[in-house]
Nucleic acid binder design. Structure first.
Lengths: 131, 131
DNA sequence: GGGTGGCCTCAAGTCGGCTTGAGTTCGGAG
DNA sequence: CTCCGAACTCAAGCCGACTTGAGGCCACCC
């Protein structure tokens, strides 16, 4: 099995080597050995890093993510938590949508003081309402 | 003009008093005086705090937000930046939508190993694609 | 075979946004 | 009047996710 040098993994994943070492320390990824001093990784580490990036984007902490990989190293993902997270992300989307509309309005509205603009106020309340 | 005690502002805004003091120190809000030791705020501070929360939700840092209030204290919002931020939020929404779909799939898909599931992989690439 | 650049370890530092703790001062109730 | 609880100040601490720095080792290129 061809292994990847840390520099290669860094280049392909876009993560600095220091972050990869940090992830290894946290148990998120594992190196398969060394060549001299240099860590070597199995090729599937790249997919794992994608998965980690996915989790991060979903708002999971690195510790959360570490717990999602079973001790065997395979993803042992709790479906309920995923579902809950999907709902949470969904709420975030609703919120951000209201927010985006508010920002667009503020950018376009000619009123000098947004605080005085009724539609700005309405939009702001809408953002509030989604909390 | 009726002024609000810091405790009242804290209660109504949901922010701890320490955060309000911190915001004041950063120049995000201003107290109008003291009653004994206690800060008093003008009533419109609540709206200002809403605005600040809005900015935070949009991903602005407190420093960014501070710069958006002119030295006169009125919002002196740069329309271009708002527009740019709206676009950014929009991209985030697209990204989160793909993410939510991926999470939902992972929660529902019976495959034991998501990495092997073609539709999971497709969804993951979609999330990647929005970066 | 000797540079040199990139990897190594370990500890410490950074950043944003607050929170916490110690020690102090009051406003308002009893 | 006397207390209590809450606000005050100032400095320090915390959290997550890394980055940076110092001091060493080594593979590879000429």
């Amino acid at each position: 099995m061809k292994t990847l040098d840390i520099a290669t993994v860094s280049k392909r994943s876009g993560l600095p080597a220091s972050a990869l070492r940090y992830y290894e320390e946290k148990g998120l990824i594992a190196s398969v050995g060394r060549q001299g001093l240099r860590r070597q990784f199995a090729a599937d580490v790249l997919q794992r890093l994608n998965l980690i990036a996915l989790g991060r984007a979903a708002g999971f902490s690195l510790d959360d993510i570490a717990r999602m990989f079973g001790p065997d190293g395979r993803p042992a993902i709790d479906r309920e938590r995923l579902s809950a997270k999907a709902d949470e992300v969904d709420r975030t989307i609703v919120r951000l949508t209201a927010l985006r509309d508010t920002l667009r309005h503020a950018a376009a509205c000619p009123a000098s003081d947004h605080l005085a603009c009724p539609s700005f106020q309405r939009l702001m309340r809408q953002v509030e309402g989604t909390r």
